[in-house]
Design a protein around this nucleic acid. Sequence first.
DNA 1: AAAACTGTAACTGATATAATTACAGTCAAA
DNA 2: TTTGACTGTAATTATATCAGTTACAGTTTT
Lengths: 141, 141
Amino acid sequence: MNSDFVVAVHSLVYLAHRPGETLSSEEIAANVCTHPARVRKVMSLLRRQGLVVAREGAGGGFRLGRDPSGVTLADISRAMQAGSLAPSWCSGDPDMDCVVGANMREVMREVFCGAERQLEAYFGGITIGGLLERIRERSPV
Amino acid sequence: MNSDFVVAVHSLVYLAHRPGETLSSEEIAANVCTHPARVRKVMSLLRRQGLVVAREGAGGGFRLGRDPSGVTLADISRAMQAGSLAPSWCSGDPDMDCVVGANMREVMREVFCGAERQLEAYFGGITIGGLLERIRERSPV
DNA sequence: AAAACTGTAACTGATATAATTACAGTCAAA
DNA sequence: TTTGACTGTAATTATATCAGTTACAGTTTT
């Protein structure tokens, strides 16, 4: 898992924490603890899914594109197109004579696809709004 | 996810495919398509959990330590101690003034722990014996 | 026109990954 | 009892990925 997902979730929660405001990549980056250019890259992906709205030029920045209680971590995961749980390396080789060696790659692919569906279901049950609530419960004002 | 998991699963399925035989790291590596030293390293972890039995010396090698229908991918995942879905990089900083910045790291940790529990449940339902059956169904003799 | 932004690509250093090499220890068989 | 075939483990290397950083063109407000 690539941490772009973490940057995206954190940024959206922070935007939800300050509703109505337009925040610059610099301000978001300070809260996430990363570089503004990285925030802009991640926000660019979120923007394509309509999860945030960007405004260029002086006084510009980002604000939410949707009600935070309707945005799930599954939406964000998809937007990051990071996807696959499966490691880049694969075992076996479809051209082998052995039944196991020849089929293992495809069977493992199925296994990982199933795992991703499980994860997607789990992430689908967690919203940006829900995370913000959890955070506020942890540190009552 | 580290591909040691893939090497481990493949190796166990291959051992299950040739029951009763003791296979060398070289023979297993040829089927998995990796280096014998890597197989030995992975098998070393499996051995500590009793999933395989190793025999040193001439004519030595590995064989299963348990009935393949009773070994789940969750057992193997634990043996690989690869664990965490969470990326190594973390956002936020507990010392920040902002509620969001200060708590995000811990909240995301909880999210990823939940995700790992989901995955573990899924992997717990898949056995080495089951995978071998799937493979044989794909390529009927 | 100047200043403050986003959008995007290129570069850099750090870390992770998998292959490879090396060799000490162990066992079986001649 | 020597030889050869193995495991166990650590060190090394090459490659890929990751995150930070720099740079700059394009856009918008003032």
